[in-house]
């Protein structure tokens, strides 16, 4: 596997992104809409996977950051009359600060306690928003600024978010921190020795994942254009993040891509079966886990040894 092969791979990826970028010009509105959803959900899946798949932080509270993204967008545009662009920066700021603050209590908890603790934080936030006058209690906001955005622009934004999420996870994993993460994923006890660094690495992942989830949340709510506490901080967000990451394959970059495509298309298709759509979706999830516990990417790797984004390269290089 030489430099050359890697270049061909890069070329293919660039070409694929370029082709995707032209979809709005030639594709139907329906296809464009599916594209938007795939990219955004893939980004959510990537960010959850960074936590649950690589950093060992199986959180059930990442919906907080989707909600914070949505509310930031609503407040920035509705209450303060600023542009949409400002909400990205503010969403990052708000979510990093919030993630940092809650990291103190929830990072004390480990394993299942962390999972539950993160969920409780998010439920507390939900209740708090419902009782908070500043955000209009349970009434929420119509995000009127979002009405003016043409679909093509939204699509490109979503594509950028999606590609950005892959690049971000890839960059994190290829960094020095990534090396520690890989070691931790493969052998928890061996990495445990360096406790302080482990804590910092996990915190770093948590902050990055939370901030990018919030950014994704901003774009999601540009598409939804209406924010309410119950929906914004719903566990359903995290359910779909986990679905996408686990179905695709935990601890792989390719996994969430596959997972998001399956999730969005399956969901769209199931709109034709109102009532039983969620039953089918749940059953499919259970069936895939039973048949391929390591997700679809795990099964593919096990059988063919294919990797699109090889983050292990660095480990190999160092050893050689």
């Amino acid at each position: 596997m030489g430099q050359r092969f890697w270049n061909i791979k890069t070329l293919c990826i660039v070409a694929a992104v370029a082709v995707l970028a032209f979809l709005p010009r030639y594709g139907s509105d329906y296809a464009v809409n599916i594209g938007i959803l795939v990219f955004l959900y893939m980004s959510l899946g990537q960010m959850w996977n960074l936590l649950g798949g690589f950093a060992g932080l199986a959180s059930l509270g990442q919906q907080i950051f989707v909600g914070l993204g949505g509310y930031t967008l609503a407040l920035v545009t509705q209450e303060y009359g600023m542009g949409i662009a400002a909400s990205f920066g503010i969403a990052v700021g708000v979510s990093v600060v919030f993630a940092y603050v809650i990291s103190f209590p929830i990072f004390k908890m480990s394993g299942v306690y962390f999972t539950i603790g993160s969920w409780i934080v998010s439920e507390a936030i939900l209740v708090f928003f419902r009782n908070w006058k500043f955000v209009h209690y349970d009434a929420g906001y119509n995000i009127t600024a979002a009405y003016k955005i043409p679909m093509g622009a939204l699509y490109l934004g979503a594509l950028a978010i999606g590609v950005g999420s892959i690049a971000l996870v890839y960059a994190v994993l290829r960094s020095k921190m990534g090396l520690a993460l890989m070691a931790m994923r493969d052998n928890e006890s061996a990495a445990e020795v360096r406790g302080v660094r482990l804590y910092r690495t996990k915190l770093f992942c948590f902050l990055i994942s939370s901030a990018y989830t919030a950014v994704t949340g901003v774009v999601l709510y540009l598409n939804i254009a209406y924010v309410k506490p119950g929906a914004a901080f719903s566990i359903d967000w995290t359910v779909c993040m986990v679905f996408i990451a686990v179905i695709g394959g935990l601890g792989t970059i390719e996994g969430p891509i596959i997972g998001a495509v399956i999730y969005v298309i399956l969901r769209q298709y199931l709109y034709n079966f109102p009532g039983i759509s969620m039953i089918i979706l749940g059953s499919v999830a259970v069936a895939i886990i039973l048949l391929a516990p390591k997700g679809i990417m795990g099964a593919i790797r096990g059988r063919f040894g294919v990797e699109l984004f090889s983050v292990r390269r660095r480990v190999d290089e160092r050893l050689e």
């Binding site: 969620m278 749940g282 059953s283 886990i289």
Partner: peptide, 14 residues
């Protein structure tokens, strides 16, 4: 842990 957790997640939804 994750596969088992997700199975119960799926069951809950169903």
């Amino acid at each position: 842990a994750e596969p088992a957790l997700l199975v119960t997640f799926g069951i809950a939804i169903v």
